[in-house]
Design a protein around this nucleic acid. Structure first.
Length: 599
DNA sequence: ATTAGGATGACTGGCTAG
DNA sequence: CTAGCCAGTCATCCTAAT
């Protein structure tokens, strides 16, 4: 969960610096790179030196599938000092060429024709993706993979790109896709300056020659370039014709109740899962609902075209928490955790009722986030109220209400507001009291870990269908476990946890889970691992063999680059932390493959 | 070294008036 | 249909205090 504290290293995408080797070997993907299912034997070292001589540079780009004249021209235009600029020029040529051929069959539109509105339709007909036309010849895939690796891309990124774009995508498109992802992730600076200082968004956009070129190609379309859209354009099955473009195809339904919530009358939808989505294993993926446009479309596309279920936890507790869930669980016969949580502030926090002024209309809290209001701020509010008499004038009321909503403040005395205590947040989120307390965790970190967590009652409601299906218990692979929301939810449902493999980067969070595990008298096995990126096929296969497969793969990947409150790096799914979504997908897909073979 | 404080908007969707 | 308004958001980084 603690994504902000790790990996300080600058991961600029550079072609010919001596950092390359170091990046590659210390980078996230080394271990994952050797992972099944695809093995490639291309440890391309010569690429590193390639920039030094013109002929090898030229050869390199020719090897990528560009024609010799084009490469020569691009080198001539740009000089040989900046291979990444050359590549961009080449890609630009190719894009122009491609757009002129666009009315014909593009290699990208592998399965759909005239089905642009598939996602808009009911969930029932999301099935027939991935069928004919997309059957992958593994040798072809391997070849592309090795070419990409030879071009200097990390193996797992190359593999992800192939998955993203389909196996019929050309190497060119794949390279572009990876490159775009890396650009988006790293606020790239072509000149190679130190970019550790935050780059203003506008200068990031306008300062990049790449983007200028792209923007020219994009026929103005966007005042607001979101990288996800570009990725989407490159990879989406809908990309070819549809000029009205990338507006989010997935609508978030209001009210945000998903397929069902307790005590709300809904005619329960029957949903038909796409073939590829059906387990085993069951899986459950979570992230913030209000992402930049197109993010949920992308995530849905990766997760076997399952329609996300958007649910606000305000139907389960006294706080809002708008989240999307992609899962392949049955949706009939859910039941909630008992006792039901109070759903108003005054019931959940009875001591506040006495002090709650009539002019504060809130009955529920806003989303519980990772940091709280300072003491100075609450004191400012108090003194303002003291000075302005009772009842305060409209202007003061507005100020106070705004602050209260922004910081989730509650009334704890006359004219006194205060942020929630950590144990109150634990309760609202459905954790046992003191779940995150002790063990050397600071107050600040408690807030952060809690703010990043599941709302247990909400998740448990969705998972409740497992109880009857697995009376003897389940094996769980829990990714991005955080403080163990999934584990707590399953435990509270009375589902026996046989083996839990919990992957969580933050040591303090792992300690919290370990402590909870030990104090709840679990009889199963808890295996804790630090890093999803280190979790490869070998390890998974070993674990699957040892306890016979996972019944549930559950996790919510980092939202840092998606969440609305992120001022600085809300750059979408390709952001540094949020791109770990692809590891969720990678691992889930590995588990499916490995288990598929064993069954 | 660790912790808390304080400053830092933008994107998105819903709503409504025109 | 559009423009304008409104509300809400699993955050980040630098600095000061402890």
């Amino acid at each position: 969960m603690d994504w902000m504290t790790d990996s300080e290293e600058d991961e600029r995408f550079e072609w010919d610096t001596s950092d390359e080797e170091e990046e590659m070997s210390k980078g996230n993907n080394q271990e994952g790179s050797s992972a099944p299912p695809i093995s490639v034997s291309v440890p391309s070292q010569e690429f590193v030196e390639a920039g030094s001589s013109r002929s090898s540079l030229l050869l390199h780009f020719v090897g990528m599938g560009f024609s010799e004249d084009t490469v020569a021209k691009a080198i001539k235009d740009n000089g040989e000092g900046q291979p990444e600029v050359i590549l961009e020029t080449l890609l630009t040529y190719a894009a122009i060429e491609k757009s002129s051929l666009n009315s014909e069959q593009s290699p990208l539109d592998c399965s759909l024709e005239g089905e642009e509105d598939v996602l808009e339709d009911d969930d029932s007909d999301m099935s027939n993706f991935e069928d004919e036309g997309c059957t992958e010849k593994s040798s072809d895939k391997d070849m592309k993979l090795s070419m990409l690796v030879e071009m200097g891309f990390p193996l797992d990124e190359a593999s992800s790109a192939i998955d993203r774009c389909g196996s019929t995508a050309s190497v060119l498109e794949l390279a572009d896709s990876i490159h775009a992802a890396q650009l988006a992730a790293e606020s790239v600076d072509i000149e190679g300056r130190n970019t550790s200082a935050p780059v203003p968004r506008s200068s990031f956009i306008n300062g990049s020659s790449i983007k200028k070129k792209r923007n020219l190609l994009e026929n103005q379309r966007l005042n607001r370039p979101v990288h996800g859209h570009k990725i989407k354009k490159l990879c989406s099955r809908q990309s070819e014709v549809n000029d009205e473009g990338f507006s989010s195809l997935l609508k978030i339904p209001m009210p945000m109740i998903g397929f069902s919530v307790p005590n709300q009358k809904t005619q329960l939808a029957h949903r038909k899962l796409p073939e590829a989505a059906i387990g085993p294993p069951y899986f459950y993926y979570e992230n913030v609902a209000l992402t930049p446009k197109g993010v949920w479309d992308t995530m849905s596309r990766f997760l076997y075209d399952i329609e996300p279920e958007f649910v606000d936890s305000k139907y389960f507790c006294a706080a809002n928490r708008k989240r999307g869930y992609i899962h392949n669980l049955p949706i009939q016969n859910r039941f909630p955790l008992l006792p039901l949580q109070p759903r108003t502030i005054k019931e959940a926090l009875p001591m506040t009722e006495k002090w709650w002024p009539a002019w504060d209309p809130r009955t529920q809290l806003n989303c519980l986030q990772t940091s709280i209001s300072s003491a100075k701020n609450t004191e400012r509010i108090r003194s303002t109220l003291v000075k302005s008499g009772d009842p305060p004038p409209e202007r003061v009321r507005q100020y106070v209400i705004n602050e209260c909503k922004k910081w989730n403040l509650v009334w704890v005395g006359l004219h006194k507001v205060a942020p929630l205590e950590p144990d109150e947040i634990e309760m609202l989120l459905g954790f046992p009291k003191n779940h995150t307390r002790g063990g050397g965790i600071s107050r600040t970190d408690r807030y952060k870990s809690l703010g990043n967590s599941f709302q247990v009652d909400t998740v448990a409601y969705h998972l409740s269908v497992l109880k009857n299906m697995f009376p003897n218990g389940i094996n769980v692979l829990s990714l991005f476990s955080g403080i163990g929301g999934a584990e707590v939810a399953l435990h509270r449902l009375g589902i026996h946890l046989k083996n839990v493999v919990s992957v969580e980067l933050s040591e303090i969070n792992r300690n919290i889970i370990r402590a909870w595990w030990e104090q709840t008298d679990q009889t199963g096995n808890l295996i804790e691992l630090p890093d999803v990126q280190q979790l490869n096929g070998d390890k998974l296969a070993q674990m699957i063999n040892s306890f016979g497969g996972f019944d549930l793969v559950i996790g919510g990947s980092p939202c840092n680059n998606l969440a609305g409150s992120n001022r600085l790096s809300r750059i979408g799914l390709e952001g540094k932390q949020s791109s770990l979504f692809y590891d969720y997908f990678r691992i889930l897909d590995l588990v499916k493959n490995i288990m598929g073979k064993n069954i």
